Simulated scan of single mutants.
Amino acid sequence: MVHVEQPWSAVVLAGGAGRRLGGVDKPGLIIRGRTLLDRVLAALPGAHEIVIVGPRRETEAKVRWTREPTPGSGPLAALAAGLDLITTDRVVLLAADLPQITPTTITRLRQAVTHTGAVLTDSDHHPQWLLSAWPTDLLRRALPADSANASLRGTLTPLSPVRVDDMDGSARDIDVPSDLDAFPE
Rank of each mutant, 00 (worst) to 15 (best):
M1R: 15
H3N: 13
E5F: 12
V11A: 07
V12H: 08
V12F: 12
V12N: 04
G15M: 04
G18Y: 04
L21P: 00
L21E: 00
G22M: 07
V24K: 13
V24D: 09
K26F: 00
P27G: 00
I30L: 06
I31V: 12
I31E: 02
R34W: 00
T35G: 03
L37E: 01
D38E: 03
D38C: 02
R39H: 00
V40M: 01
L41D: 00
A43C: 04
P45N: 06
A47C: 14
E49D: 12
V51T: 08
I52C: 07
G54Q: 06
E58Y: 13
E60F: 05
A61L: 02
V63S: 02
T66Y: 09
P69S: 07
G74W: 10
P75F: 04
A78T: 04
D84T: 12
D89Y: 08
D89F: 08
V91H: 13
L94N: 11
D97Y: 14
L98N: 14
I101Y: 08
T104D: 14
T107S: 11
L109Y: 02
R110V: 03
Q111S: 06
T121F: 02
D122A: 04
S123V: 10
D124K: 08
H125F: 07
H126R: 15
P127R: 05
P127W: 06
W129D: 05
L130F: 03
W134C: 10
P135F: 05
T136M: 07
L139W: 03
L139T: 00
R140D: 07
R141V: 04
R141N: 09
T157E: 15
P158K: 06
P161M: 14
V162E: 12
R163M: 15
D165Y: 09
M167H: 12
S170E: 09
A171F: 12
R172W: 15
D173K: 11
D175A: 15
V176Q: 14
S178T: 15
D179A: 09
P184A: 10
E185Y: 11
